[in-house]
Every structure is written in C-alpha cells, then in structure tokens.
Amino acid sequence: MASKSLLSVRGLTKKFGGLVAVNNVSFDVRDGEFLGLIGPNGAGKTTTFNLICGFLKPDSGRIVFMGKDITGKPPHEVAKAGIGRTFQIVRPFLNFTVLDNVVAAALMRADSVGEAREKALKHLEFVGLYDKRNWKAKSLNIAQRKRLELAKALALEPKLLLLDEAVAGLNPTEVDTLLELLKEIHSSGKTILMVEHVMRAVMSISQRIIVLHHGSIISEGTPKEVANDPKVIEAYLGARRVM
C-alpha cells in the first residue's frame, strides 16, 4: 500500500544568528498516518513546526502540502490550505466563551455564524466540552484548555493536524484521555503530525517516528525501531557508556 505524501518537506533550513536550528531537514508525512516528531530539548522540533505552519520563514527549503507549495506562506493561508495546529502553550481567547472560541475557528469553513455555531457545538461535543460551552475560556483548567485547543483545530476541518506538545503539563490520566481522543481523530481519517516530549504518549500512539537532534534528522522508523536505535539513545542520554 503506497500511501501518497500529504506533506513533503525538502531541505528545510532555519538559522537564528549563528545558531542553525533546523539543518537541511527533509521528510514526508504520508496521507492518513500518525507521525511523531521527537528529539531532545533544543532539537528544533518546534522551529520545524512553526516553519511548516508559516509562523517562521525558512532560510531555504521547500514545503509542499497536497501538491501546493506553501513555503513561507503566512499562517492564515496555511490554515486555509488545510493544516490545523495547536500551540505548545495553549492560546485560547480568554475573554470569549468556550463556544465562541470554536465558532471563531469554525467560521473558516462556514458561510454564516449560524452554521459555524452548529459545527462548533458538534466539535465541542466530540472533545467533551459541550456542557461547558457557555463558560468563559479563562475558567477552564489546563486539561480542558488543551481540549478546547483541539476542538478549535478540528473546527478548521484540516487534512493535516499538527500537534505541538499536546500532552505537556497533563497528569497521566489526562494524558490517556487525550490520547484516546487523538486515536479517534486519527481513525476518522485525519493525518496527524505530533511533536512531543512525553515519550510514553508519543511512542504508544504513533505509527512512525522521526527523531531530530541539533536540527537534523538522526533516525526514522517505527517506535520500536527508533527506541532501540543507538544514535537515538545517545542523543537523549549522552554517550552510551553512561548506561
């Protein structure tokens, strides 16, 4: 089964002054897969993320999504093209109600506020925030805010969902709940690229893993393969001898 490439990144490079954050990175995200992007701190995961989503402009390289070149396009155009993202530090519209937060997102795929509202309610139901829909977003706790963030991203009806450390800061129970949600989203046909730091989460749910270190890809494969790759172990733990 040759899965076609939904997102293809070629030669992506980004420098900040003298520091090369992302160094000639190339990879594909295949249609329908659940891809995990991991790496030690400072590996360049979030930078790559922001480059794809348009929040940063690459110094060189190309990003092609569904056949369209989206390199360097501003974030709102990337969103319109079909990529939805969540933020590492969640960014709800605090003074909006939970419902209005999602309505603002759903408006992109709706012709009217009324239609957006109906769609928003469905997404809220899906993430389990329906009963809190009239709460002000600032009243939500972190786990609820993460689910709200997810609902907003889903309301964009994206082909590709980009998750930036979606489970960071959650306790184990909350992590499991969110992972269940993600599995459901995946099985409904969405392609997911997940940048993650919590090993347990990303290893258990991803079909494929890419490992970044110092801005370059050092390993690629199934979770099991990557976990046993000596290069990966070295990157996370330092020299092998330490063990």
Binding site: P74, R91, F93, L94, N95, K152, L156
Partner: peptide
C-alpha cells in the same frame, strides 16, 4: 484577544 492564535485559525 490573540493575534497569533487568530492567524492559526485562518484569520488575516
């Protein structure tokens, strides 16, 4: 509220 978050929702 949050211009960056708004951009991620397709708002110009």
């Amino acid at each position: 509220e949050d211009e960056t978050a708004a951009m991620a929702l397709g708002i110009n």
